[in-house]
Design a protein around this nucleic acid. Structure first.
Lengths: 240, 240
DNA sequence: CGAACCCTTGACAGAAATCAACTAAGGTGG
DNA sequence: CCACCTTAGTTGATTTCTGTCAAGGGTTCG
């Protein structure tokens, strides 16, 4: 890897506090590759040989069953993914594909485990990272199990919209068909849900969304910090 | 805590390989309590003050939103829970209640974090444990998002049924209303789903289930190691 | 015995998926 | 530059699935 990339990664919470020596071990055998869009990086059930880090672009983590498929997560820079499979040396439970042109650092899992064993700072950072992943997917499960389709769309819009200015418009960071898969519905249902939200002051112009009446949307979605995550400002509802 | 309990816990993967000294630190301030059924141990959004370990009985992890509620997990002995909230010192994302008379060890999270920082063996064990939790909830999300209600019930029966003898009967480890909540449906829907599975050779007599035709059930549920977990023997379907 | 509570069943309503058709936008190649 | 093709998105009609509401049976337990 080139030096400037090295320093980029070095700043990540996962690597920030570890020793230089161990960091060198990790990066020595790492690959840095740029993939075009729609490339499958790995397939569920295959062995976890690398810890992946998205430096640029976007990666979809998805899973299939029979002829169905669902998106579990979309990874954006700068973030690691599949840490859990790495640590336990287990097969992936999800497949990964690039959504756009994407640059990825791949570190051999053997190195990750080696360094994990001898660098307490890295161990702590890895644990923190994995805890965050765990809590994210718990939230996702709650979103799916507790809210209906329309409520999920409303909540997604609220947590995706910029906090300031309050009623600003923004562009969906995901293709609608992908968003539909992520929040557990068909593209048709998403389209209809968005349409129905127009009566609550949501304007939809292609990828651009304008929330004219945040309060109305909130009274439907009841955004909660316990489901929508810490990034969402308007999360008064802390209790059930 | 009494000595015999200490040795019980000591055998857990999480504590097995750590030093005696650090183990002593962890257990010194730990509580050992036995609760009756239907006691709420903690509520989502509250601070994670203790790492919990179920020694006996069963604990439900659930979450509420508006007037709805869903079960995320049922913990049975001997297992820890809410490690992630412990490590990150964040509020719980789930509430917990006992399902029956339950004995629980509670270790102050401050001690857990202290020991985590200085005992690499414990750090590794904790990471392994958390990875397993992460992968379990990923599987749960896949189950919910990829299968419909009837398929989820069929898959649950297959993964709960003893592997040998093939067509033995068994008793559901969960109340049906709880099972329904766990696999994301209403009790009424579960009841109907079970009824409809009778034509596939499933006998339902109260809590006792008999699978007369495993193959028929499998052709509906398509059990997969990637969703139903490593405990399920009949998980040929490794690919999508 | 009565009071809960779990489970089941039936009737119904509502939600969401499916199937199909159509539009619009973007890219390709003649 | 335009015709063509592909694909995302939308819309409508319809079916399927699932939740809701209501009632009744059975069990447990005080």
């Amino acid at each position: 890897m080139r030096d400037n990339e090295l320093s980029d990664i070095r700043q990540l919470p996962l690597f920030r506090s570890m020793s230089n020596e161990n960091y060198a071990t990790l990066t020595r055998a790492a690959y840095d590759q740029t993939f075009p869009a729609q490339v499958q990086l790995f397939e569920e059930a295959s062995g976890a040989d690398f810890l992946h880090i998205v430096m640029d672009g976007a990666v979809e983590l998805f899973a299939g069953w029979q002829d169905r498929e669902t998106t579990l997560e979309v990874i954006r820079p700068v973030t690691t993914f599949i840490l859990a499979a790495c640590i336990t040396d287990s097969p992936y439970l999800m497949s990964a594909r690039t959504l756009e042109k994407t640059r990825i650092i791949m570190m051999p899992t053997v190195d990750v485990r080696t360094v994990f064993d001898k660098d307490p700072a890295f161990a702590l950072a890895a644990m923190t990272e994995l805890s965050a992943c765990y809590r994210r997917i718990i939230r996702h499960a709650k979103d799916i199990k507790l809210r209906n389709a329309r409520e999920r769309v409303a909540a997604y819009l609220l947590r995706t919209a910029p906090a300031e200015p309050t009623n600003a418009s923004f562009v969906l960071p995901l293709e609608k068909r992908l968003l539909a898969s992520f929040i557990g519905m068909t593209p048709e249902s998403l389209s209809r849900a968005m349409r129905s939200l127009q009566e609550l002051g949501v304007k939809v112009e292609g990828q651009r969304i304008t929330i004219a009446n945040r309060a109305a949307l909130e009274s439907l979605a009841h955004p909660s910090w316990l489901i929508d995550g810490p990034d969402l400002q308007n999360s008064q509802t802390r209790g059930p």
